[in-house]
């Protein structure tokens, strides 16, 4: 990379301006964490030079699930039914293996009504970026508890949540997602690096983004608030995503840096912050999450990554062309085939 100062680029490597990556105007509350996530998606897809029409966006129902309308307007989007974006995405991504899937869900959408589909999507390792905009509350229906709500939190009606929250990252690590990360909508740099790694990853990336709901759950004591994340968020590492085309060689002291080679030659660089963390070690990841929870910290960064497991489309042994547009000659067997079957049934 050149070190001389150049004016900021107006177009990316495929010649598109950032405007080509924007979506409709948001209708979410000002200050809602979900808007920041949409902005990061716009930036990352722009910076990575992805053709917007090669992306397919999916969501369930909720404030978070509205957001696919607010980024990548040149990509097809499908705002489906509550909790069931995983199945819709799975069908579409199997139908056209060339699509890059991005699903945006909420904590209610994923961990409450949609936990069944979420879990089975994990097992399948369907290649897509699955973002949970986690605010610990049902935003769209005005403040009820979701399955990630803090234990002991209280509604206006006086009802107290007695049930423990589900940690979607733990589920994801355990059940087969191959890139699992947690981030904070307010941490621009980290979220960008994670999203870029997810774009490069050939498998299922689950990104749990703590994304505060300023209207219903940003109060004192909420672990999903801006202030809590600023105080208790604990980045595991400093992340740098290095695209395949860039070759940086920097001198770094040994033990400070880990590198994960992503599909297609891109690299993810993890610089140690405090303790050493190996994101390819599943057990270690689970232990770290459990310990952090006990101490009241929120670990952020790449929690787990496995670039070797085949994704669902590979397991299905599909032809290279998208199933969706195979010509009749490939999908309707010839007359002789029917004759042969009929003979066997005589």
């Amino acid at each position: 990379m050149s070190t001389t100062a150049v004016p900021p680029k107006k177009t990316n490597r495929i010649g598109l301006e950032i405007a080509a990556y924007k979506g409709g105007k948001t209708t979410l509350c000002a200050g809602c964490g979900h808007n920041s996530v949409s902005e990061r998606l716009v930036e990352c897809f722009f910076e990575m030079g992805i053709e917007p029409w090669s992306v397919a966006k999916f969501s369930g129902i909720g404030c978070s699930s509205k957001s696919p309308a607010y980024f990548l307007g040149m990509a097809h989007g499908f705002n489906s039914v509550h909790g069931r974006a995983p199945s819709v995405a799975t069908g579409a991504l199997v139908a056209n293996r060339n699509l890059l899937g991005v699903t945006v869900s909420g904590d209610g959408d994923t961990a409450s009504i949609g936990i069944g589909q979420f879990v089975h999507m994990l097992r399948r390792n369907v290649r897509q970026i699955y973002i949970i905009e986690n605010n610990g509350v049902y935003g769209l229906t005005k403040g009820q508890f979701s399955a990630t709500a803090d234990i002991g939190s209280k509604l206006k009606t006086g009802v107290v949540n007695d049930l423990p929250p589900i940690d979607c990252c733990l589920q994801a690590i355990h059940l087969g997602a191959t890139l699992v990360a947690r981030s904070f909508s307010g941490d621009k740099r980290q979220l960008q690096a994670i999203l870029k790694a997810a774009i490069a990853h050939r498998g299922l990336s689950v990104i749990d983004v703590i994304s505060p709901c300023v209207t219903f759950n940003d109060h004192e004591g909420s672990t999903k608030s801006y202030s809590y994340m600023k105080e208790h968020g604990e980045p595991l590492h400093e992340l740098d995503f290095i695209p395949a085309c860039e070759d940086i060689a920097v001198e770094i002291a040994e033990g400070e840096i880990r590198e994960v080679e992503m599909h297609g030659g891109a690299r993810l660089r993890l610089k140690k912050v405090g303790r050493d963390y190996d994101p390819t070690d599943k057990l270690n990841a689970v232990r770290a999450l459990a310990e952090a929870e006990k101490e009241g910290h929120v670990l952020t960064g790449i929690l787990y990554v496995d670039t070797s497991r085949p994704d669902f489309v590979e397991l299905l042994n599909l032809v290279d062309e998208p199933l969706a547009t195979l010509p009749e000659s490939k999908v309707r067997p010839p007359r002789e085939a029917l004759d042969q079957i009929m003979d066997e049934l005589r």
Binding site: F78, S87, V88, A89, T90, G91, V94, A95, V319, V331
Partner: peptide, 30 residues
């Protein structure tokens, strides 16, 4: 190529099986 021009997926329930059908049809599959 020895590769399939079809996918058969046993879903986790009928909510998912119809969801996959809707998703796949939306993307252009039969």
């Amino acid at each position: 190529t020895g590769k399939a021009t079809f996918a058969v997926i046993q879903a986790e329930d009928e909510l998912a099986s119809i969801g996959m059908v809707i998703g796949a049809s939306w993307a252009g599959a039969r």
